[in-house]
Nucleic acid binder design. Sequence first.
DNA 1: TATGTAGTCTTTAGCGTCGAACCTTTACTT
DNA 2: AAGTAAAGGTTCGACGCTAAAGACTACATA
Lengths: 186, 186
Amino acid sequence: MPDEQPSPGRTREPTLDEQIAIYQREYGDLDPQVEKVVNALSRLDRRMSVAYGRQLATLGLNQAEWEVLKQLVMAGEPYRLGPGALAKRLGLTPAAVTHRMDRMVATGLVTRERDENNRVRVIVELTDEGREKWLQVMRMASAFEEDLLQDLSSEERGTLGELLTRLLRRVEDAQPDADGRLSDLD
Amino acid sequence: MPDEQPSPGRTREPTLDEQIAIYQREYGDLDPQVEKVVNALSRLDRRMSVAYGRQLATLGLNQAEWEVLKQLVMAGEPYRLGPGALAKRLGLTPAAVTHRMDRMVATGLVTRERDENNRVRVIVELTDEGREKWLQVMRMASAFEEDLLQDLSSEERGTLGELLTRLLRRVEDAQPDADGRLSDLD
DNA sequence: TATGTAGTCTTTAGCGTCGAACCTTTACTT
DNA sequence: AAGTAAAGGTTCGACGCTAAAGACTACATA
């Protein structure tokens, strides 16, 4: 017989509620209401990332490239940023940005050249192709997000946004710059 | 003078509301309410991860080790799982789990041995030291989470939990197993 | 003009993960 | 029994990130 429950137990992992029940059993001092919010939040973010990643793949992009496109567009016309500024916004080290730009220049999403006014600086600029990719992703993403929130009424969406914003404010005020570099993170 | 605004503009990145305003300007077809929810969510998760990472570091743990401890405890007594099951729960390839176990066995957080009843299998088991670390993290984490939600009333916490759960349900139903491996992810 | 100093990016070495090939043990088939 | 397929882990090669060291430019001071 195909062994039923030997030591390395069944593979299926718990749902959110099951998971919280387990936490309660293993560690009594836990507020289930708090736990539910926090765990739902992180699960949701992971699921969304996975879904996002799939959509990006259909456009021939990966998550890393998408993050860069986003930041460049967010910087506004003329869609330029230095590697250092990009590093801060992406939460990466400057070294990682150097390598990432190597690849993205090769795939034609951005250009990289020295700043003529200050030759120690480098300017990364979005190409037309990069801008076009950004638009394509936005079209997919907004459809996906709208679909995700479909079950919520407009009032509920407002409430959710407001509650999340309050949490965000708390966490952003709380860790101003304990490290000095991660403060400017996202 | 230290150049005011040459090409690579000021370093400071936008707040959530600024960011949404920019998106609106760059891509008109966007529901600001939806955008606020989605972006607040991902920002919040990132900020929490960073905060978590700092706390773990003070206990000599990294994020990777913490994820493993969590899964083993969540599996319940006797806190055992096979590498394959761990891989699924962690969202990693089996190869990555092999290496991660190498390290965690070396640091004494888990043990690894072959299953005598089925010698193709391997059993990873939490050590007492690993269990103790898990407890320490839980103490810190629950305090942090309680602090994070401090500004919300019990009713608001309930509302937030319920709204997030509904979103989660939607995204979990929507992507049952497009890939066949990520389905069993978290 | 020369020199120190700070700022900006790149290079280097090491680590963790992935995808794919490989090996071992178990289960099924005839 | 023997042979084949399937399942569970490990090994190998490549890639992307980090931390630390290096290179280059601009600016202040003497």
